[in-house]
Simulated assay, not measured.
Amino acid sequence: MKITIEIDATIPDLEVVLRTPQFDDQVAQLQVALQAFDTEQPHELLSPITYLKDDTEYYFNNAEVLFFETDGRDVYAHTNDEAYLVKHRLYELEQRLQPTFMRISKSALLNVHAVYGLTRTVTGATVGFQNSPKIAFVSRRYFKDLKERLEEERNL
């Protein structure tokens, strides 16, 4: 991918032009990300996620998170060993963390790069992670999308 930035003082507003030989999934994801970018609140999209446990705030790389899961009204980020409270709604996290994370049920987002094993069940599937006893539930509705996404990741 080639990125070019041109400064032109004659144009009144920011303009983004994508030139591509074909419209594919990568271009579609880029289009969605650009549309979601709100120039009125860039600090909201770019600010790091704060993870809370007891009375301590933690700041670490989002790649360490295996999955996000709701429990009642609270959202928790699960790492290999711990679960941290997050002060964002699941849909906000889904928008901010694309394309690494994807929805796997009504109440969970999964880090696709952290998947180690996928076990099919009657009601959906469970995802296993390397070096962690935690599992995440995938509903039937999202199973096909996850399977396709994992295939894409393997073929890259």
Rank of each mutant, 00 (worst) to 15 (best):
M1A: 13
M1L: 10
I3C: 04
T4E: 14
T4K: 09
T4H: 06
I7Y: 14
A9V: 00
L14F: 11
L14C: 10
E15A: 11
E15Y: 02
V16A: 09
L18T: 10
R19G: 08
T20L: 07
T20V: 13
P21F: 04
F23Q: 13
F23D: 10
F23V: 13
D24G: 06
D24T: 06
V27S: 04
V27I: 13
A28P: 01
A28D: 11
Q35R: 15
Q35C: 05
A36Y: 02
D38M: 11
D38P: 02
E40R: 12
H43R: 14
H43E: 15
H43Y: 08
L45F: 11
L45D: 07
P48W: 09
I49P: 09
I49R: 02
I49K: 01
T50F: 03
T50W: 05
Y51F: 15
L52G: 03
L52K: 06
K53W: 06
K53F: 07
K53Y: 09
D54V: 02
D54M: 02
E57S: 11
E57Y: 09
Y58P: 02
A63I: 07
E64I: 00
E64P: 07
V65S: 03
L66A: 09
L66Y: 12
F67P: 01
F67G: 07
F67W: 04
F67I: 03
F68A: 05
F68S: 06
A77I: 11
H78Y: 14
H78Q: 10
N80D: 12
D81M: 02
E82D: 15
A83S: 13
Y84D: 01
Y84V: 05
L85F: 13
V86D: 06
V86L: 03
K87C: 05
K87S: 14
R89P: 00
L90H: 09
Y91H: 14
E92S: 11
E92K: 12
L93V: 06
L93M: 13
Q95L: 11
R96M: 13
L97R: 00
L97P: 00
Q98H: 07
M102E: 07
M102V: 02
I104N: 10
S105W: 04
K106Q: 15
K106F: 03
S107P: 04
A108Q: 11
A108D: 08
L109K: 04
V112A: 10
H113W: 01
V115I: 06
V115Y: 01
G117Y: 02
T119H: 07
R120S: 10
R120H: 13
T121P: 02
T123N: 15
G124D: 12
A125R: 03
A125P: 01
V127P: 02
G128C: 07
N131R: 13
N131T: 04
S132K: 06
K134D: 12
A136N: 03
A136Y: 05
F137R: 04
F137Q: 05
F137T: 14
V138Q: 06
V138H: 05
S139Q: 03
S139W: 06
R140D: 09
R140Q: 14
F143G: 01
K144I: 05
D145T: 11
D145I: 01
E148K: 06
E148H: 08
R149Y: 01
R149I: 01
L150Q: 08
L150P: 07
E153K: 13
R154M: 15
